[in-house]
Nucleic acid binder design. Structure first.
Ligand code: SF4
Ligand code: SF4
Lengths: 130, 130
DNA sequence: CGATACCATAGTAATCTGGTCGGGTATCAG
DNA sequence: CTGATACCCGACCAGATTACTATGGTATCG
């Protein structure tokens, strides 16, 4: 089970933005300098913005900054924004996907693991990483 | 972040085999009857066998059985066999993948999360699911 | 105005997923 | 011995996803 580059790049970018939290907007080019293809990163920053994790300033001297203080942004927030929520089985979100949903022991396992893994991811904030 | 059908089917199959632990070898067809395409499942059972989680009996009346008692097989074992080990970043397994590996804070985060998520997955055994 | 820098959509090559197909080989019942 | 059963194995394939690239916009500053 691997993490895609979206998740990794997303976290690297957020880490960079957290490091420069009080230095005004950081341009795409600056963020990309940690080793991410510029135009690809541009898409990813779009996802982060639409999920309310960063906000952007257009025009000359524009760029991106984190939308909340770094202690309020967790790895879970970032991964959910970049890769969609953790879904071990479809029946977690939607009861109707499987006939035996109510009495299924496997489902109970997926449910428990999903909750615990999410809690783990939410236990690390950007601030913790600095 | 989603789990592929390999992981899901693998766990369903192992769950079935654990339920019939002392009833002799269970044929592919029987296992597949929980709702998995037969020929696809055959591949998956091959992976499980090569990873030592099940063993097989050939010939008429043959089939598959779990290779260890159900309390010694965890969800982690199964998912690792089916999807490869959890790898949030390549630098966890291989120090040399990145120049700044030794002093990187992000890496420390991936490392901690990997350990904790694996522990979570290892905390549920097949027996727990019955 | 014009340079800077974000925004949005579309295209694309390579890889991965979720299978199917065909031809083996081992074992047992009769 | 022979045939039926049932695992073994590699190749193939369509469709989705990934990781980008390309192009043309739009907002803002000086
Ligand atoms: S079999 Fe169980 S875990 Fe799988 S989809 Fe149905 S309810 Fe969910
Ligand atoms: S930047 Fe850090 S986390 Fe990423 S590959 Fe390098 S050492 Fe690992």
């Amino acid at each position: 089970m691997r993490l895609s580059t979206r998740g990794k790049y997303g976290l690297y970018a957020m880490h960079y933005l957290a490091q420069h939290e009080h230095e005004g907007p950081q341009s795409l080019s600056r963020i990309a300098s940690v080793g991410i293809p510029k135009q690809y990163l541009e898409q990813l920053l779009g996802s982060l913005r639409r999920n309310g994790l960063i906000h952007s300033v257009r025009g000359a001297n524009g760029g991106y900054q984190i939308a909340k203080p770094s202690e309020e942004i967790t790895v879970l927030d970032i991964l959910d924004a970049m890769e969609g929520p953790l879904a071990l089985s479809d029946c977690i979100a939607d009861d109707r996907c499987c006939a035996k949903a109510t009495k299924c022991r496997v489902r109970h396992t997926w449910e428990r693991l999903t909750v615990n893994i999410n809690r783990e991811l939410a236990s690390v904030s950007l601030k913790d990483m600095l």
